[in-house]
Design a protein around this nucleic acid. Sequence first.
DNA 1: CGGTGTGAAGCGCTTCACAGCG
DNA 2: CGCTGTGAAGCGCTTCACACCG
Lengths: 204, 204
Amino acid sequence: MDISDKIIGRLSQYRRLLSMIAETGQSNIYSHQIASFVKISSAQVRRDIMNIGYTGNPNNGYNIKDLAESIGSFIDDAEPQFAALVGVGNLGKAIIDYFSGRRPKLSIAASFDSDPQKQSRVIHGCRCYSLEEFDEVVRDKNITIGIIAVPTADAQKTADMLIKAGVKGLLNFAPVPLHVHSTIYIEDIDITMSLEKVAYFARQ
Amino acid sequence: MDISDKIIGRLSQYRRLLSMIAETGQSNIYSHQIASFVKISSAQVRRDIMNIGYTGNPNNGYNIKDLAESIGSFIDDAEPQFAALVGVGNLGKAIIDYFSGRRPKLSIAASFDSDPQKQSRVIHGCRCYSLEEFDEVVRDKNITIGIIAVPTADAQKTADMLIKAGVKGLLNFAPVPLHVHSTIYIEDIDITMSLEKVAYFARQ
DNA sequence: CGGTGTGAAGCGCTTCACAGCG
DNA sequence: CGCTGTGAAGCGCTTCACACCG
């Protein structure tokens, strides 16, 4: 079986939940407990865990620490992965905030902005470079992930630039569909669309 | 047929695309053109349009202006809707940025923060209030949508507060599942999860 | 022809339901 | 008992494929 993007998403949620619970000292957990926290069915939880090859036992359910590690070794690469953030506006800063030191295997290694005011400033341990330094920094720091937080008008050319430098996956916050080669994975976060959805369903 | 949340999301995308194209002066468009812009199949586009009861014609496809209006009258309410943003950090400011005056029928009418420094400041025409003023402002401004951009630890109590004040839908940026009554619609935007998905697929 | 509109088929994800087990 | 692991069923979304039309 190959793993769909939904499964990866849920695994990421499970892991986050498990690390939170681990801190309380609890050592085991049942699928229905995980399920009620993240609001999906327990069958779904069990199937997801089955998919990564981890197995619990009927007595104690799952060992929290082991399961978290299993998920980690499944969704994280063996080597750490590095991302570049392009566009250090409010959104860019918020993203750096969210991530600073959150995950050992995944970090934002550099940020870029066209505004000279921002360049060579360091925000949460992440230095901001000029766009001229782009190719060099991406190569040197072995960056494979791009985060697009630039104005809509610059999004496509930012994507092109990132991909040309060798990036393999994009997280796109610009409210516009990017056109790139199909080997590149894109995840869109479309805040406007999400708010419109909420507005629609808030009145049903 | 009732309309799923995916359909609403796509309709929102179509509308945004259509307004962009309308500005070029083009007046008609085919389903396959829409499809190639937003990267879904033309059959999907036609079916979505069918769902809202609009109909094109085999000669010219769809009239851009009419279709955009049709989508608008479907996903927008007759009355304008108002949202409240809680948490005016970098993310909160970015969200206000994104939205300021974007849609006539949907706007962020007020923001809230516990930091007195931010209170009564106006960002992009959106005034920041203290949490003490919360219930009053929400009621006065007829707010039905809440946007949660507070630190994770405060997310649940922010949600409770919003709902108690009468909000019917939530857009949640905190990386934690919120537990609320099932009549409340929640849309989660989980940036960490999204980045982990990109990281995973960037190396397949 | 090259479009739209749409019943029907296809497909992937989710849930059911139960065997197996401590 | 009450849990996990999982084949099979169910369900909803997407795509196919074709009638119809200008």
